[in-house]
Design a protein around this nucleic acid. Structure first.
Lengths: 136, 136
DNA sequence: TGCGATACACACAAAAATGTAAGTAATGAC
DNA sequence: GTCATTACTTACATTTTTGTGTGTATCGCA
């Protein structure tokens, strides 16, 4: 998300879909790394560098971008400490936290789908957030 | 989704995220028009032309693409009738149908978020699928 | 013979998302 | 004075997604 052409059909359609609460919701969580970030933040605050370490393959640029969008959308809070070297911590907001159980349901559905569709199971491990993935 | 560069970092990262059941699930429903299509199909089978009529601003190309991806992902079934002019109907699969209540929850969350974040409410109407949007 | 109807396909263009590589500011430790 | 540390920023390149416009096959009907 660098610069958007207001008034392209593409952008108008995006706005149109923003009117529906469902597609609106999906737009908020739609960035490639956003849900992973939310899940990492579930146990509590995390520093920028820790997120970077814990999320495989994410670049600093993408991490910054996605975190800033999450912040702008009110899903996470940014805490800046006036230290050197700098320290910045990220934390889920209440409404962001409400997304977590929904993600649990989606995760379970994804597992069922994968099994039915491919006959395999996921081996991805969310080490630091185990309790989320046990769906009620 | 026309042609994908195998082995670009971009594509490798996509595959990596496919390992997680959550991001896997989001990939399946991530196309711009997919969830709207799923919701339209909830009441029952629909013809290509009806979907086109009912979904604002979607082009034939996008409709085709998204439906084909949904089909390839096992979320909808395609029924072709050997008639002239042609008739094709689309229908939710069982696992696709399991996504509907989750969408209901997401829709509700989206509504809460929008209200908190913007102070407004959605005016988007899903005429043909009213019962979905009343979340338990 | 020509037309309308339907569900597409195709080549191309535009826009958006993602990735790469390099640089920056401030400070304390050496 | 140089260096390491941290959380970025910036300019640019690549890849992917979305949109535009036109064409097609088949048949029944006028």
């Amino acid at each position: 998300m660098t610069s958007i052409k207001e008034n392209s059909t593409n952008s108008l359609n995006r706005k149109l879909l923003t009117d529906c609460n469902l597609t609106y919701a999906v737009q908020l969580m739609g960035g490639r790394w956003k849900l992973l970030l939310l899940m990492r933040l579930e146990p509590g605050r995390q520093r920028f560098g820790e997120l970077k370490k814990n999320i495989p393959n994410i670049t600093e640029r993408m991490l910054t971008l996605q975190l800033r969008e999450l912040e702008a959308d009110g899903l996470v809070t940014r805490h800046v400490f006036a230290e050197v070297p700098p320290r910045v911590e990220y934390e889920l907001t209440p409404i962001g936290r409400e997304l977590v159980p929904i993600c649990g349901t989606l995760h379970a559905w994804g597992g069922r789908h994968r099994y039915q569709h491919t006959g395999t199971e996921s081996t991805f491990s969310h080490e630091n957030t185990p309790e989320i993935w046990s769906t009620p």
